[in-house]
Write a protein that binds this DNA or RNA. Structure first.
Lengths: 194, 194
DNA sequence: GACATTTCAGACCGATCGTTTTAAAAACTT
DNA sequence: AAGTTTTTAAAACGATCGGTCTGAAATGTC
């Protein structure tokens, strides 16, 4: 055998993901990644092949560590409007928190001209899953009568995701968290009327 | 006197703004700017001082050439819901167009960690003006009875701007322009009910 | 303790970054 | 046409980019 690694792969991905999340793919340099993760360039390239390779794994890591948790909220049985409400409550908590830094997926899509196709494809694929979870909640809400029979779950999901994106770009409203909550209530109530 | 400039300042800003708009501040290099604008580095630095200085002027240029037009839509008398509808109609036209590339302001805010404070401050200042135009339309709509008396123009503006941001990040919906228009109608009708 | 293996620290690679400098070409004034 | 001024084109600046390589230190096996 040989000398054991002095780093935990998961911890490295944690740090790297945080950095990409804050500064974007193109805005994060190898030197910064080396400094933040603690391992040296040689090990970095041996483990991940390239900056693009590392980023790709960070996207997957972000999904596992961050988005999965949100998906759990959306898939908790029984499905219905309660999932949607819990989801947005969680998001507003994040948006108003001290360490808000938008969303890695959103940032990456916005700088897509500078990012390799593979990572973008992964994001698109994963976003579909996200979207389906929303639709499933709204379909259940229609079945249970929480939403009117004529409500269109796919359309309303598009509506909710647009609003979510707005929140993730804008961050905490000037008037504070209360305003964000008011906004959320307005949105959720509007989908049962429209 | 001396040799006259071979370039028009306005044309230079046009090209530079397009480039920043597409690739962001940090993602656009001096060499690319030189190639796109046609003038050389020396003239570039003499005219704008630095990349940051050029970007600052591009933000102002973008406001004059792009945002002003939108502001005109929002300030055309008589103020009311018609302005809001016309505004979103215009935005959806852009979002579904071939050369959609989000919004320079939004992209810059998203990459704010990599942008100098001066440009960010300018954007924030100008966004306030934008916001006020929205509020004025909604206030007029409340006065004229287009919106219920209890409607809150400031709150509804926040709502509309969140949706607009979502549109500018998402771009054209998968299902096409019709879906975007449906979305717009839903949003606009929801503010008179909520 | 010698040997094999692998991580580690850091020098090094060419390319490009934003920026400055140099020098020749061009257009104005007199 | 001489002289002045400014634009040009291009070379060069140090710094940093993503990426590679070398050699020593550290850990395992035998």
């Amino acid at each position: 055998m040989s000398r054991p690694k002095a780093y935990k792969r998961d911890k490295v991905l944690d740090s790297a993901t945080q950095l990409f999340w804050q500064k974007g793919y193109h805005g994060t340099s190898l030197s910064e990644l080396v400094a933040a993760t603690g391992l040296n360039k040689h090990s970095m390239y041996k483990e991940f092949g390239s900056k693009a390779g590392l980023f790709d794994e960070c996207i997957a890591h972000y999904w596992r560590k961050i988005v999965r948790e949100l998906l759990d909220i959306l898939t908790e049985e029984p499905l219905g409007m309660a999932n949607i409400r819990a989801f947005f409550k969680n998001r507003i908590e994040y948006i108003c928190s001290e360490d808000f830094k938008s969303c890695l997926f959103v940032k990456t899509i916005i700088e897509k001209e500078l990012v390799e196709a593979k990572a973008l494809e992964q994001i698109r694929r994963r976003n579909k899953i996200y979207e389906k979870a929303f639709i499933a909640c709204l379909e259940a809400a229609v079945r249970s009568g929480e939403l009117p029979k004529k409500a269109d779950p796919e359309f309303l999901t598009l509506y909710l995701l647009h609003f979510l994106l707005g929140l993730l770009v804008m961050g905490k409203p000037e008037k504070g968290k209360g305003e964000a909550e008011k906004l959320m209530k307005f949105i959720i109530s509007s989908i049962s009327k429209g």
